[in-house]
């Protein structure tokens, strides 16, 4: 017991930088630096509790990146691009809006109504719809029609910005 105490004192005496990591004793480092992502749509589970490195989400409160051990929070999503960074590369999905729930223990659930990879969109369809929505938004329709056209415009403009 006495010799152990001396050994410990010796370790403490050395500057922290010199302490080699091999000599450190502690619990097994089973904690992963990955976050478990579930990206679900009503008709499809795109990711099912899969380990990824980072997820960038377009929250209403601003763009945010979620890594492992993120503070638990609930974020409303704007229609926009979710970027998923995996070890094998990055993937981008355009989601039509929904919620992202960051749960404790590095679990992230994203729920959206529609979500597609960016390459599934047609730039031409977006352009023609923007023209149409602009006409309705500045036209003399009912308040509801104008509000809906403005929602469409917002979605389409975000989509167009990402398609370039």
């Amino acid at each position: 017991m006495n010799s152990l105490r001396i050994a410990r004192a010796a370790i403490r005496a050395r500057p922290a930088l010199l302490r080699a990591p091999v000599q450190r004793r502690g619990y097994a480092e089973a904690v992963s630096d990955k976050i478990k992502l579930s990206l679900s749509l009503p008709h499809q589970a795109v990711y099912k509790s899969q380990d990824v490195v980072q997820v960038n989400i377009p929250a209403e409160s601003g763009e945010m990146g979620v890594l492992a051990n993120h503070v638990p929070s609930i974020e409303q999503l704007k229609p926009g691009v979710v970027e998923i960074i995996e070890e094998s590369g990055n993937k981008q999905f355009f989601l039509s809006g929904g919620f992202a729930v960051v749960q404790p223990n590095s679990v992230l659930s994203i729920n959206a109504v529609e979500g597609f990879p960016l390459e599934d969109f047609s730039a031409e369809a977006v352009r023609s719809q923007i023209a149409e929505a602009q006409k309705v938004a500045s036209g003399s329709g009912s308040e509801q029609e104008i509000a809906e056209a403005k929602i469409e415009l917002e979605v389409l403009e975000t989509l167009q910005a990402h398609l370039k």
């Binding site: 229609p79 355009f94 039509s96 809006g97 929904g98 109504v113 529609e114 597609f116 599934d120 969109f121 047609s122 369809a125 977006v126 719809q129 929505a133 809906e148 929602i151 469409e152 979605v155 389409l156 989509l159």
Partner: peptide, 19 residues
């Protein structure tokens, strides 16, 4: 309603066969 409108416009922006 907001989500339905946003999703509708996302679906309409897809390439033909996916749409």
């Amino acid at each position: 309603r907001y989500l339905a409108v946003a999703s509708r416009v996302v679906r309409r922006s897809l390439k033909e066969e996916k749409r």
